[in-house]
Write a protein that binds this DNA or RNA. Sequence first.
DNA 1: TCCATACTTGAGACTGAGTTGCAACTAGAA
DNA 2: TTCTAGTTGCAACTCAGTCTCAAGTATGGA
Lengths: 154, 154
Amino acid sequence: MKAIDRFARFLSQRRLKMTKERRAILDDVLSVRGHFDVDDLLARLRRSGHHVSRATLYRTLPRLVESGLIHKVEMAGGQARYELMVGRHHHDHMVCLGCGDILEFESAEVERIQEEVCRRKKFVMTGHTHQIRGFCASCAGEGRAGAAPRKVHG
Amino acid sequence: MKAIDRFARFLSQRRLKMTKERRAILDDVLSVRGHFDVDDLLARLRRSGHHVSRATLYRTLPRLVESGLIHKVEMAGGQARYELMVGRHHHDHMVCLGCGDILEFESAEVERIQEEVCRRKKFVMTGHTHQIRGFCASCAGEGRAGAAPRKVHG
DNA sequence: TCCATACTTGAGACTGAGTTGCAACTAGAA
DNA sequence: TTCTAGTTGCAACTCAGTCTCAAGTATGGA
């Protein structure tokens, strides 16, 4: 089933509407690979001639997250990033403090341990965040002391 | 070695000064058990007659973190919490979306896997965040649908 | 003990990410 | 086509945290 149809179904199931703004946002999101933030998305939308307001974008992204089409990555410092989840399964992130790059990793074992921990404490898990911070191979190579953290778009 | 002496040494090693504000903040932090945020701390300081400004508190907390006396816990949504690390070692958190409670867990195995992952990708880890979100035993018990997330102090 | 000075402080302005109120607009069921 | 609940853009707002700057102070040295 195509992503747009999944979203349409998701919306109609809760009496929400498929507007041209929502369609434009989803189209754009589907065309990106890797991680993006609100500004990336907004800039790309404008470039492609769609004038979606920042407010609408902020209102739509949670819908896309709920529908399972994208995933929100909470970064330390409070700004969020997103990534497409269509055809992918859960993974966690390594964030480079040098170049801002995000690497992915997954570990069934970590998932298993988490579930075990929750069972032991009778905690009902609804989600988790597992992020490793540090320096990627190339940033570490050029000497991490010199690599000041910077925000990288795109 | 007492915490205050550790902090004094930490400060003098980098030509920073031990002021009465910093002493008051550390005193207060040492008296709390569990997790706290900036407002908790500020309120307690005022109650105990110390008038430390918000700005100073925000300036001092990173120093306490660097010195290893406390640890910063980045919460989803962007507000930070802190916890005393004196005499404790690393652990991660389970955050209850119902009552705001924070449970702790630790797993040497997860740490091991993380290191393995980093080695494989030649990533130099400087830190990590591993948070499980969900509902604690008592909030899950009373039916999680009804438990709206709320912010709890203390 | 006194001094010099680099480090600190408080107040308030500011920032950046995200949210909200509201009047005008619109998707989509009937 | 009509009706109405849901949606939009804008601008004002919130919230956590940062920054500026003038006034104050801890601390090593004379």
